[in-house]
Design a binder for these strands. Structure first.
Lengths: 102, 102
DNA sequence: TGTATGAATGGCAAAATAGACAAATATGAT
DNA sequence: ATCATATTTGTCTATTTTGCCATTCATACA
């Protein structure tokens, strides 16, 4: 990739995605949603935080284009819509494990 | 991946890595370093920011385990040490491009 | 030794983020 | 219509991050 290409990339938009992933609670959400969709209240139980806080985390992820929501009855279900996330998170995880070993 | 696995993952450490990538200037640095190592002053020219700011960005990336530095003479050269970054950043880039199209 | 250059660090002010509570909204059940 | 539950949003405070300036540190060279 040359500098010309680099300049075309919207780094602010990319940073928004990374920023959405840059929080332990939101990473936990993403991992949990890799298996199957979950509603906000299930995620609240997982995060053990105020539901308003959970809702805000979810809106950050949704706003970054990582999640989709679907309302069914009283519940709002969130699911992951970026499949290539898994590979990278595994890579990061391996990296972190390596670093911690030393 | 089940919940038992999830609990074993060090989300704080992973978040640190993501946080390091969660800034336009640092993303630009990472992209630039995909080709070859660069010294701080070259990166300053690229970012067009105060060298102290650039140095801080680099220390964030280094501290997250993404970069290595090597001092040669007056110059400090930084290089990328996490090859799997490229795949993910391309994925994010495609994602962002898709989103902007709509 | 003194000087010049590259880079890192201390400290500060502005901006962004996180988390909680209260209030508002939406939906389903009685 | 009323009530209960799920979720979102407004608002506030505390914390973190960013970016710059000034200073310090490190290295090369005269």
């Amino acid at each position: 990739m040359n500098l010309c290409d680099i300049e075309k990339i919207n780094f602010a938009a990319q940073a928004k995605v990374m920023k959405a992933l840059a929080h332990p609670s939101r990473l936990l959400v993403v991992h949990a949603l890799m298996d199957h969709e979950l509603c906000v209240c299930e995620l609240r139980d997982l995060l053990k935080q105020d539901i308003s806080t959970v809702s805000r985390h979810l809106s950050v992820l949704k706003n970054a284009g990582l999640l989709a929501e679907e309302k069914r009855g009283l519940y709002v279900y969130y699911k992951l819509i970026v499949p290539c996330l898994a590979n990278f998170l595994n890579c990061v995880n391996r990296m972190v494990s390596e670093t911690n070993k030393k």
